[in-house]
């Protein structure tokens, strides 16, 4: 009856192996110092800082000496101060995209052709506008976005860009409003990057042109296309060129 002895021995060995494996697996499972490392992670809780946050706000009154924001035209959309009777009377707003925007790496790859650069900036503005502005202001800028329809407009209607007042406004105004807020609109500098805010401001001008286009502004082949859904990038380029003149 030799085979019986071997089978039992084999059984015992396999049981032993299984036990060892399980113990090792168990031990490995408890070993979590690499899984949970004591390092600050984005938006995580921290038991080191008093406010319990890993994300650190800038220290109050700190001055960023390497990146001083001295260029008001780029950072505030302002290029001077109006003077009436020797007294300051409101800011003079910038009405073109500052050159720093064109210098950004994402636009720089273009051949250097001004029109091509502008088209790139406006395309970017189009995309960003649809993300950040269209929920309230609508994709046409008429103040009729989905959130406006859902009750925002009961209290404070989002602004329609196609009024005489706003059509006459320099684009620096739109940049300023996105950055610092206006009325019920909260400041959006935390949400939209500096260059993107300029791109959106420029795109708002495109929207204003598009909503006041005459038939004579179009070429004959464009008129025949009107019934078809137009490619948005194409139309923004056209109007963009008009703005540049």
């Amino acid at each position: 009856m030799n085979y019986k002895h071997t089978s039992i021995a084999a059984h015992r060995t396999s049981l032993g192996l299984a036990a060892v494996t399980l113990t090792m697996l168990g031990a490995a499972g408890c070993h979590t110092d690499m899984w949970v490392q004591p390092k600050p992670k984005p938006q995580a809780e921290s038991d080191f800082f008093v406010d319990g946050q890993s994300n650190r706000p800038p220290i109050p009154h700190v001055v960023d000496r390497a990146h001083l924001r001295t260029d008001d035209a780029y950072w505030k959309g302002i290029r001077g101060v109006n003077v009436v009777d020797g007294k300051p009377a409101g800011a003079v707003l910038v009405d073109e995209i500052p050159s720093q925007v064109y210098d950004a790496p994402e636009y720089k790859s273009a051949a250097g052709d001004k029109k091509e650069l502008l088209a790139k900036v406006l395309d970017r503005g189009h995309e960003r506008f649809n993300i950040f502005c269209s929920p309230c202001h609508g994709e046409l800028g008429d103040g009729n976005g989905m959130i406006a329809k859902r009750g925002f407009s009961v209290k404070v209607p989002p602004r329609n860009y196609n009024t005489e007042r706003l059509r006459a406004m320099p684009i620096g105004h739109f940049f300023d409003v996105i950055t610092n807020g206006y009325g019920a609109m909260t400041p959006r500098a935390f949400q939209v990057d500096q260059n993107d805010r300029w791109a959106i401001a420029a795109y708002i001008r495109v929207l204003q042109y598009s909503q006041h286009a005459e038939e004579s502004d179009l070429k004959s082949d464009e008129i025949s296309k009107i019934d078809q859904p137009a490619a948005p990038a194409e139309s923004s380029k056209k109007t963009g060129e008009g703005e540049r003149k």
Binding site: Q43, P135, G151, V156, A184, M185, R188, Q191
Partner: peptide
């Protein structure tokens, strides 16, 4: 990022 409540407030300062 998980949005900060400032993002919620862009709309919810006015609705709900």
């Amino acid at each position: 990022n998980v949005p900060s409540t400032a993002t919620c407030y862009t709309c919810h300062s006015q609705i709900w």
